[in-house]
Each structure stands twice: as structure tokens, then as C-alpha cells.
Amino acid sequence: MDLKTLSLPRLNQLNPTLESTTLKLMEETGELAQVIGKFRGMSGEKINLSDDDVINEIAVELLDVAQTAVTMMFVLEEQYNIDIDLLLNEHWEKLERKGYLSLK
């Protein structure tokens, strides 16, 4: 199995709440959808970027979504005492059980 990990930091210049992080996640997801819509010509506007530039913009927006999701996990851990390590292990087991991941 080829394993690649992605680590994102705990942001220390913010005081996120569950509600503010949820709203931010929705905002960032909307921006991702907007960029993909432009790339696919769904917005009706003419695209002045190369395909490579648009794909790069999609990746940038996707990282914003991922960072916000990670921030929400930290909020759950710090403010609601959720055991993220336990849940992460359970998530990996679920992925393996469903056949999405082989750890062997």
C-alpha cells in the first residue's frame, strides 16, 4: 500500500467555535464548488486561466476546506473532549472494512 500523509497545523491565531468553524467550512466548500464550476464552464463566464492554473486553484481551495475540517476536529477535541486518536483509528478500520484501504 502506498501511504501518503498530510499534516495540517492547529491554528493559533483564532478562537474557533463549533458554529464559526461550521460556517467557515461551508464557505470554503462553496468556494471550492465555485472554482470547479468555473473550470467546467458551469458559471457561464469565460475562463481566462489555463487548465493547469485552474487545477491549481482547485487544489488551493481544497486545502482551505481540509484546514477548516482539521480545525473543527481540534475544536471537538479541545472544547468537547472528543478522542480524535480513537476516532481516527476507528475511521481507518471502517475504510479497511469497506474495502477502500488495505493495510496489508
Rank of each mutant, 00 (worst) to 15 (best):
L103C: 00
V54C: 08
D64L: 03
L76H: 09
T29I: 07
K4D: 12
L11Y: 08
G44V: 03
A66G: 03
K24W: 00
L14Y: 06
L88F: 14
L103Q: 04
L18P: 01
G37E: 07
S20P: 01
E28K: 04
T71V: 10
I47F: 07
V70F: 05
E96Y: 07
M72R: 14
T5A: 07
N89K: 08
R40K: 14
L32M: 04
Q67L: 09
A69M: 15
S7H: 12
H91F: 13
K46Y: 09
S50L: 09
E77I: 02
I47R: 10
L8K: 00
L32W: 00
V65D: 06
L103G: 00
E93C: 05
K38F: 03
N56G: 09
G30P: 03
V60H: 02
E93N: 08
I58M: 10
A69G: 04
Q34E: 15
F39A: 13
T5N: 07
T68R: 08
T68L: 10
L32H: 01
A33I: 08
L103K: 07
D85F: 07
S43G: 02
L87I: 11
E61A: 05
R40Y: 13
E61V: 01
L32E: 00
K98G: 03
P16W: 12
S7L: 11
Q34R: 12
D2A: 11
T21K: 04
T5V: 15
N12E: 10
K4E: 11
L6D: 04
S7R: 12
I36G: 03
D85W: 06
L63S: 05
R10C: 11
G30K: 03
L11D: 10
L49G: 05
E28S: 02
P16Q: 10
V75W: 15
S20L: 02
G99D: 02
I47T: 13
R40T: 06
D52N: 14
A69S: 11
I58G: 05
E78D: 15
W92S: 09
L14R: 09
V75N: 14
E57W: 11
P9F: 06
L23P: 01
E57L: 15
G44P: 01
D2N: 13
A69Y: 12
M26I: 13
N15H: 09
D51R: 15
E96Q: 15
N48R: 09
A69H: 06
L3K: 11
L25H: 14
L18E: 12
E28A: 01
S7G: 04
D51C: 13
I36M: 06
N48K: 12
L32P: 01
M73S: 12
V60D: 10
L87W: 10
T22N: 05
N12D: 15
K4V: 10
A66I: 15
I47A: 14
S20Q: 03
D64P: 03
E31D: 12
N12K: 14
T71K: 09
L87D: 05
G30R: 02
T68K: 09
T22A: 12
D64K: 03
E27F: 06
E77G: 05
D64R: 00
N48C: 08
V70G: 01
M42C: 05
R97S: 06
T29G: 07
L101K: 08
K94Y: 13
T71R: 09
L6Q: 13
V65N: 06
V60Y: 02
A59Y: 12
A66E: 14
L25D: 05
M72D: 03
R40M: 14
D64C: 02
E96K: 11
S7F: 09
Q13M: 04
P9R: 09
E96L: 04
